[in-house]
Simulated scan of single mutants.
Amino acid sequence: MFVMTKERGLDRTTVSQEIDRLKRLAEDIRAIAEGESPTGDDLKNAPILNHWVRAVRPVPCLVGYVPDHPRPPGTGRPVMTSDLWVLAEHQGWARTLSRWYLLGRPQSTAGSAS
C-alpha cells in the first residue's frame, strides 16, 4: 500500500519495484491460466516452505458505504474493498486492487480519544 500525503508523494523507486513485481505475478498467473506449469528454472531458486498451512492475514483496505457499488447490490450496506494499494485522502481518491474509489466523507471520529 502506498499512502500519499500533502507533504510526501510516492517514492518512485519503491513504486517502480512494486510495478515490476506485480507484472511478474500477472505474467505467471496468465501462464498458469493458459495451462503452463512452472518450469525447473522457475522453481530452482525457490525456497522450501516446510510444515506449511493455509492461513489468512489482514491486508489494508477501506470500509464504507457506496450507494451504487456493483457488488453487493443495494444501498445502505457497508462494503469492504479489496486490498488497498494507494490512498490519497487529500486528493479525494484511493486505488484498490480491483478499482478506483472517490473518497467521500470519512467516518466520524466523534467520541474517540484525542
Rank of each mutant, 00 (worst) to 15 (best):
V79K: 07
P67A: 08
E34M: 12
Q91I: 02
A26M: 08
L25Y: 06
E34Y: 02
Y65R: 14
V15C: 11
E7D: 08
L25T: 07
L103P: 05
G92P: 02
R8K: 14
P58I: 03
L10E: 00
W85R: 07
N50T: 13
L87N: 04
G76T: 10
G74N: 05
L49H: 15
P38D: 05
E18F: 12
D20E: 13
P47W: 11
L102V: 09
R71H: 04
S112C: 06
V86I: 15
Q17W: 05
K44A: 09
R21V: 01
D28A: 15
D42N: 15
N50W: 14
D20S: 11
I19N: 03
D20Y: 04
R24T: 10
S37F: 13
V59R: 12
G92R: 04
T81G: 00
W100K: 14
I29L: 14
V3I: 12
S16N: 07
A31T: 02
R8A: 04
Q107L: 12
Q17F: 03
A55Y: 11
I19H: 04
G35M: 03
K44G: 02
T109F: 03
G92K: 08
M1L: 12
L49C: 06
P67E: 13
G35K: 01
R54T: 00
R77S: 10
H69S: 10
T13W: 07
Q91T: 00
D28K: 15
R12I: 06
P70K: 09
I48E: 13
T39D: 09
H90D: 10
S114C: 00
R95I: 03
E89K: 10
V15H: 11
A26Q: 14
L97M: 06
L43M: 14
V63C: 08
V59Y: 10
N50C: 10
P73C: 08
A55E: 11
V79W: 13
G40K: 13
S82T: 13
E36Y: 10
P72Y: 10
P58C: 00
S114A: 04
V3W: 04
R30W: 03
M80A: 11
T14R: 15
V63F: 02
L43R: 08
